[in-house]
Write a protein that binds this DNA or RNA. Structure first.
Lengths: 327, 327
DNA sequence: GTCGAGATTGTGAACGCTAACATTCTAGGT
DNA sequence: ACCTAGAATGTTAGCGTTCACAATCTCGAC
């Protein structure tokens, strides 16, 4: 900066003013400074800047299971929205949810001087651990939150599940079976709750419930069991990956979808449309979620105390894996 | 730091020494300092540190198309490997490959004081643009590189394609059709080259070539055309997503896979095993790629000039979408 | 006891920037 | 010509570290 100042024949402070877009610089001086900057290929040192201003323009994000569709979409979209708002976003992926590994993740982010932390981990355990951590910066929760919750943005999982189940019930199915996600995930619990409440609302008993772990393999195993049960005519599967595995098992056992059994997934992964049959599923608008998360973070950073945001409503995408039951 | 020094009754320099694990501190003093640190909840300011040391312990990565399987796997694995090596990694996603947007991406990273930049964009245009940029830090290319290339790590796409095509030829197919990726991607070109060379090697003419853009939709369109051509008994599709679309089209047209037509994909996405029929495909070890990229970066940072690494060999995963042709 | 080498600790400056205040221009009014 | 308010610019200090060197301890050998 001193060099630039010398080259332009001004003081370093004037250079600083130009860089920060101050009004108090004569146009002619500004031009001269800018020219010097260009000529010298000068770039301002952000470490020094951060040191004195204490503003890093960086927000941190903690994620997990980045191989799964949802988490990775959220990570990308937060990153993107952050950039657009002039923030860098640092991502750290955790592999388990012990107090220790979360503490480490938070510390790593704090060391990077993040101004806020976005937690996109829908694991119950993780959630509690993080909450209990002392946090010198605002903390925003993404994913698996409930309505009205402060400092949190999310998609209404329960509503999504209800959409799926009601669609099936409307088609004339007596009840709907459910393949759940792992119950440690709050989303899994919420989708399950939606499934139950949709049945209750119609005063019918829900179909059988099978446990899964999001993986196609676990869906496959659930499918094998469902194929044996002549009573099941419709299944709501907690994500598209498992739905795929399940349909594979049904195929393998010679059960027709949707002729004998209707299937609804959750996520609307890009492949869903090209499964055979094309999968009816629930679409979650992840990119909007990311934007909302950043927006909320910014509000908190702006001094608003414990802002909250509305849940995003998912939408049902009806394709070919669902039909009325045959009698 | 001054506070800690005061609390421990030493000078700030001694605190600094403790923090940096210097040997020259009496055990007793060290203990006292550590206690003071813990008590005051002190954490060292990295901005100040960076300012004086000029080492950011951060490497930058430029990616694109993070929704696609390959790019996102690579991003995650570089990030991960970087962390394990004690580096933070900043990711910036570019949306197009103009000189301007790449310049911006690089600038953004340089502003974050990255010590090296990893470019994981397999777009020809992007590649050239980046190469032409003045770079004050080492630049490592990941993806779509060729053998022996300096400062680059990659997976041998051509070998992978040859594996796929030879498998089909070995089964007795006369020749193999190919659905390509977009030709702006160097991977797409390499897979295409592998497809051609496998045919040449057997002294047979390759089957028809259809253009795709990685999307299942484009695979679907290619599938529609292939379904009409009675001459095609085997297709090598440049990625699994398009293979899915293609198989969907074949189903729709009543063509049996693999009875009438065999299909091989590329990527081995987690869903591939659960397609119906389960997809034969080529597995790329992305996590290894990420590790190699970081390793190479570290070597360059360590002063080695233009280090190079071997290409990673992909593996064929044979499942149910391929079979011998009927006569 | 005294000296000196090595161990341990301390001191001051510097990294590149911005904040706060001080100084110098400039132009309009008298 | 002279004053003054506001515009434009400059000066100094300090952000929290580490580096280079200086100062002080400690302990064994004489």
């Amino acid at each position: 900066m001193t060099d630039v100042a010398a080259a332009a024949g001004v003081s370093h402070q004037t250079v600083s003013r130009v860089l920060n877009g101050s009004e108090l610089v004569k146009d002619e001086t500004r031009t001269r400074v800018l020219a010097a900057i260009a000529e010298l290929g000068y770039r301002r040192n952000n470490a020094a800047r951060l040191l004195v201003t204490n503003r890093s323009h960086r927000i941190g994000m903690i994620s997990a299971h980045l191989v799964l569709h949802g988490p990775s979409m959220i990570a990308v979209s937060v990153q993107d929205a952050g950039h657009k708002a002039g923030y860098d976003v640092s991502l750290v992926a955790v592999e388990d949810f012990t107090a220790r590994s979360l503490r480490e993740a938070v510390d790593r982010l704090l060391d990077e001087a993040v101004e806020a932390i976005v937690v996109a981990v829908a694991h119950r355990e993780a959630r509690e651990q993080v909450r209990s951590l002392e946090m010198p910066v605002p903390l925003v929760i993404v994913q698996g939150v409930s309505d009205g919750q402060r400092m949190a943005v999310g998609i209404d999982q329960e509503a999504g599940a209800r959409l799926a189940v009601e669609h099936l019930l409307d088609l004339g199915h007596r009840h709907v079976a459910h393949v759940t996600g792992p119950q440690e995930w709050v989303e899994a619990g919420q989708r399950r709750a939606g499934w139950r409440s949709a049945h209750e609302h119609r005063h019918v008993l829900p179909g059988p419930e099978l446990g899964g772990d999001w993986s196609p393999q676990s869906g496959y195993e659930a499918g094998l069991r469902i194929a044996e049960d002549p009573d099941v005519t419709a299944v709501f599967v907690a994500n598209d990956g498992m739905a795929m595995g399940l349909m594979y098992a049904l195929h393998e056992k010679g059960r027709d979808v949707p002729g004998e059994i209707s299937v609804v997934g959750f996520d609307d992964v890009p492949e869903a449309r090209f499964l055979w049959p094309a999968l009816t599923t629930v679409d979650q608008e992840f990119s909007l979620l990311g934007r909302r998360a950043v927006e909320l973070t910014l509000r908190a950073l702006g001094g608003e105390v414990d802002p909250s945001a509305e849940l995003i409503r998912p939408a049902l995408v009806v394709r070919d894996s669902t039909a009325a039951p045959r009698h």
